[in-house]
Design a protein around this nucleic acid. Structure first.
Lengths: 355, 355
DNA sequence: TTTTTTTACGCAATCGTTCCCGGTATCGTT
DNA sequence: AACGATACCGGGAACGATTGCGTAAAAAAA
């Protein structure tokens, strides 16, 4: 069950030439006569010759392919990012190898080893929620592997990074809830170690204090897998529903958390925005068709993929080691829809404690 | 910017052995003394040696990786399939390379060439809507490349295939619409050349005639890109809304068509199921949260991925060419929700939110 | 005509690994 | 003592492609 491909040797043999001549003819070298070139080119075309990239990779120690690791592709945000990555990569003759960590540090490591041993020329990564140990990544980076982080970045490693202004996104969303008249705003956040979780949480807290509201730690819940497992969202919501400090609105910190919250609230018979206002990060294109249409913070995912890839290719193709790294920060967009509709005709609270 | 890896030569040099001995020691050959083995193994472990899969691929003409081509990963159906594929592949030590055709025959061909030249040991494919010319695939297959088709299969090529009972799925959905009291049922279908489109259309027609209803060709609309481009769905709906034969229900034949129809109908101010009943194929996990919750035909996508991969690995690892091919047909599931509520019914069905 | 230059091609090494041949000890057997 | 068996290890070709170097023949210059 093996699959025989046409090689440069077949051409050489058939034409009575050496492999070197054929190789040079195919690469249009000046030291091959026009007639021989024509001969080789035509024959190669005829038998449908394609150079073997594996042999090339072995020789050149590069593969013209880049590796991408995300937690899961069944997530609009990540699939949009990947589309952005592919669009730039293909235009530059690079192939993209996608792999999923499924929020597992082990699988992330496995994929990483596979990709590097397969000689990808660079990596674009959003780390899993579970990853605590970045030493392997760090070693890779130290040994010269070009890496670009996006979304969930690793502060310890100095390289190009692409993120959105998570702080501002969260701040704006929370402020929007406040301005809509919500008084007790909870948040369902991602794994606390994650950069995006920290930043979004900071934005949330800042919005509260800036508007004279207290930060209540019992209103902050974490989901270790970012909502990939629904029960953990259910658990978080259940905690929040304890009468003691029941909130009237929720800010969700990730795609799956946002829809997860809606799912749990509705399954428990609560209405949105009646019982709870809801806003969250999401790039799903179905949010406007949901019941209720969700107010969301949307990230420019496609563009993030493009930017990340451009940075990576720049590193890959640079002659000398890149030492001057930048962190590109794109801006989010707050799309206001039904799920955060103003609570009915009460006087708008005046923030008295603005600093 | 190159990335130096540890090779067998480094070990050989450091230990004063030949590469052959090191290679054999690592592969636990009987003709290497236990002491030498121990020495090599320990040193290999110490300097973190990993065999170079590229060199192996070149030598063995196999890569222990399989290629997957789908039209787009930002589609729950396909990402669920991929998860199924990966689960089996990883358990058997295979890696999965994913690529998207984005419904373009050109990109499909490009991906195909990339994957085969990269020595994937086999392919799992759902062809793009655009692909008319299967000669390249056929040649690949004739030359011994193991291929499994799923979803959108190619009748002309004899190999393993994994599909669902599209006919029955469509038949059941249409029957459900009829039983719900809808009188004029339109369908928005995929590119007519596609196997799935034909089968689903046949099921739709059969359900109509079996229930004494006429098949009206003007109620059958096609979307060449399966709803990936929203305007083509809009065009289809616009056609259907012409007063002459305005339907009261729509059966949509693919994931993006189903949500696309809802989107267009709602944007035009129509209500579902008030003005139109709506049911369609979909694997999105958000359909129950939509307004209205959508009745859908759901495919066992994860399982399909598993089945396809098992078939493929079986072909890859078979000593002799496989000639006895099978077509596995799984069954769909009709999930009845709000969007097809009986026209006369008053009682509101209880939506099941958590499954 | 002789020398130099140019043209056009082949040889062989290389990338990392495996594996077919060898080869050399160290035994044991006759 | 001589031979074969066994154990252990190295040399080198191979996988497909590129490329520096060498060189024969042809063309140009002397």
């Amino acid at each position: 069950m093996k699959f025989e491909a046409v090689t440069i040797k077949d051409i050489a043999k058939a034409l009575g030439l050496s492999t070197s001549t054929v190789s040079r003819a195919l690469r249009d070298s000046y030291e091959i006569s026009p007639e021989t070139k024509k001969l080789v080119l035509e024959y190669a075309e005829k038998i449908n010759y394609h150079p073997n990239p594996i042999a090339l990779s072995l020789k050149e120690r590069r593969s013209r392919s880049i590796g991408v690791i995300v937690c899961e592709i069944a997530n609009s945000y990540f699939s949009q990012i990947i589309n952005g990555i592919e669009s730039i990569a293909y235009n530059n003759g690079y192939n993209v190898i996608i792999s999923q960590s499924r929020e597992s540090a082990d699988r992330e490591m496995l994929n990483l080893q596979y990709l590097t041993s397969r000689s990808v020329d660079g990596l674009i990564i959003s780390v899993s929620t579970e990853t605590k140990d970045f030493s392997y990544l760090k070693e890779l980076h130290d040994r010269g592997m070009p890496i670009v982080f996006f979304d969930r970045i690793v502060d310890e490693i100095e390289t190009h990074k692409v993120i959105v202004d998570n702080y501002k996104g969260a701040y704006d969303a929370t402020t929007h809830l406040i301005n809509s008249g919500y008084k007790k705003i909870a948040t369902v956040s991602n794994a606390p170690a994650l950069s995006i979780a920290k930043e979004r949480l900071a934005g949330y807290k800042a919005a509260l204090t800036d508007h004279g509201m207290e930060v209540d730690e019992s209103l902050i819940k974490y989901c270790a897998h970012g909502g990939m497992i629904l029960t953990e969202v259910e658990e978080a919501i259940k905690e929040l529903l304890k009468p003691k400090n029941k909130p009237d609105a929720i800010f969700a910190s990730a795609d799956k958390l946002t829809t997860g919250c809606l799912r749990i609230l509705r399954s428990k018979g609560y209405t949105v925005p009646g019982d709870f206002g809801l806003v969250g990060f999401s790039n799903t294109d179905l949010t406007e068709l949901l019941d209720p249409p969700l107010s969301v913070i949307r990230q420019p995912a496609f563009e993030m993929g493009e930017v990340a890839t451009n940075l990576l290719l720049q590193m890959i193709e640079s002659k000398r080691p890149v030492t001057d790294f930048e962190t590109k920060v794109l801006t989010t967009e707050l799309l206001i829809r039904e799920s955060t509709r103003k609570k009915e005709a009460k006087a708008k609270p005046i923030p008295s404690l603005l600093k």
